[in-house]
Nucleic acid binder design. Sequence first.
DNA 1: TTGAAAGCGGTACCAT
DNA 2: ATGGTACCGCTTTCAA
Lengths: 332, 332
Amino acid sequence: MATIKDVAIAAKVSVATVSRVLNETGYVHEDTKTRVIKAMKTLNYRPNEVARSLYHRESRLIGLLLPDITNPFFPQLARGVEDEIHQHGFRLIFGNSDENLEKELDYLQTFKQNQVVGVISATNDPEATINQDLSMPIVFLDRTGDEDEHVPSVFADSRKGGQLAASEMMKRNSKRITLIKGPAHLRTAKDRFNGALDILSSADVDFHVLTTETFSFQEAQQRAEDLFSIYPKTDGIIASNDIVATAILHEALKRGIQVPSDLQLIGFDDIPHSEWLFPPLSTIRQPVYEMGKEAAKLLLKLIKNEYIEKSTVQLPVSFIERQTTRKVDNNE
Amino acid sequence: MATIKDVAIAAKVSVATVSRVLNETGYVHEDTKTRVIKAMKTLNYRPNEVARSLYHRESRLIGLLLPDITNPFFPQLARGVEDEIHQHGFRLIFGNSDENLEKELDYLQTFKQNQVVGVISATNDPEATINQDLSMPIVFLDRTGDEDEHVPSVFADSRKGGQLAASEMMKRNSKRITLIKGPAHLRTAKDRFNGALDILSSADVDFHVLTTETFSFQEAQQRAEDLFSIYPKTDGIIASNDIVATAILHEALKRGIQVPSDLQLIGFDDIPHSEWLFPPLSTIRQPVYEMGKEAAKLLLKLIKNEYIEKSTVQLPVSFIERQTTRKVDNNE
DNA sequence: TTGAAAGCGGTACCAT
DNA sequence: ATGGTACCGCTTTCAA
């Protein structure tokens, strides 16, 4: 690979001059500029990013830390981030943490050693991260800590989502509700749950709470089996996310339960496959791709030290009506 | 962040000595070694990877180029790659190319500017990539060019997969087959198709070929609608991948077609959600995660200049019998 | 308008 | 066994 020195020699100028035309800083005569540009072209010169990073003590890399890209929720998030930063000339260095604090810290460390300009992290434990004294901007994605921390973060309105799920369910007249509570350590899961509770506890329905420790299909399927044995009369299930909802739907169909006539089901997230199911899953949508983009935008502002109106951005959720819920009666 | 100089001062030695203990090269007295290590600890020193990269003209980063992480096929691939390289102290710089040659070349360029040690690429156009004179090892993943190129690559045995799909279908007595042909520009899609053709053309069945230009659910759904109108009697469909199969299943169920009794369906890939469907999808499995790992292993060998027995590794596919195919009659 | 040179944080060669 | 120093490729200050 040609270096700046090669260009300088070819153009018969000093490296300083080449650097000047490269960065369009300082004065440089039109003619020499032309010569330099020509030399760069013929040598197919590209500046070495590593050398630049070293000088600036900062690369054009952004660290992205996700629990597990294999979980269908995350690819869209990643894509949103990538699309946004790519436009601004940044690249992604990416890692899976498996929700393992040690791995997270290890990644944060190597991000730092690579002089990333900033990081976007979907971690359960923002505090631990913050206490690392990263000395670089970081924005938390999706899984955020307590509200009052005022740490830069973007997330969806989970509580509203939970409320929405429950009230849409109420509108459609299910009376014996099962509410699935997701993993206790996830803030978003708790919020969804509490949101649903807000509505259910003051509604005229029976309800039953069931907890899953993970968001895995296998566990959810297990729990679904139990559920239909223990509480066969349930006629409305609010799942903690779409994977869990999928497992429940799977089990219900297996048992010949009619969906949505005998059992209504609402998921959460709106991952891509939800609409591919049959019947397609009604769910609470999080604008995942947009969340990724917003996180990237926020980070970019932080990096450029721009004015930030609000460092926590909360995106709205919406009810996606598909076919695991009944049509609502417009005449009531 | 503390630098090597800080450590040197704290330990009252030269930077050369610190470098020696850091890299365990050359002689250094036990006592001074202890002092240096202590200084590193108290300063919480981590070597600057960027400076190292500059000196070595090589970073500890590996470039991963995928068409679109949002396509459910790729996250597992990415995970396989990441898990393997992470073990060896490498990190991933990651990009989506959208099967767009320009974006691909752009990424390759920036990978190079960041002095990655090697790249793993799932591209349709290995030739174009190769012609870039990357001057670094690259292994192609999944979507490879012609066999005889002998370019390092890992992929599954698509042709065998196609044959397997067709013969399993034959075993189960479907007689009016629809064979879906995937995007013409994808080598793997062609191979699957030809594999199925190998079997079908010499079997005692009618068959019908239908082409999709993409692997998108939307397009497949459209085509599925057409299919059931044009060829309502089809009783066995071999799809070009699981997404297409999902769309077909969706449409079949919508029309009240009994699966698998009236219509059997076999997908390709075995992406995670295939087993979440109801009925769960019978499919030809590609060991995707392993493919990612193998690609990483191959690249690592290339990087270390180790002896390579075979630079193209082909992984076996297998038939995953689930419930969109009938149980095969053991008494025949 | 241009060039020389110091410095970014490491590594490794050459002395001592 | 240890230290001095040139160098990796680039940017920027200072002087000319």
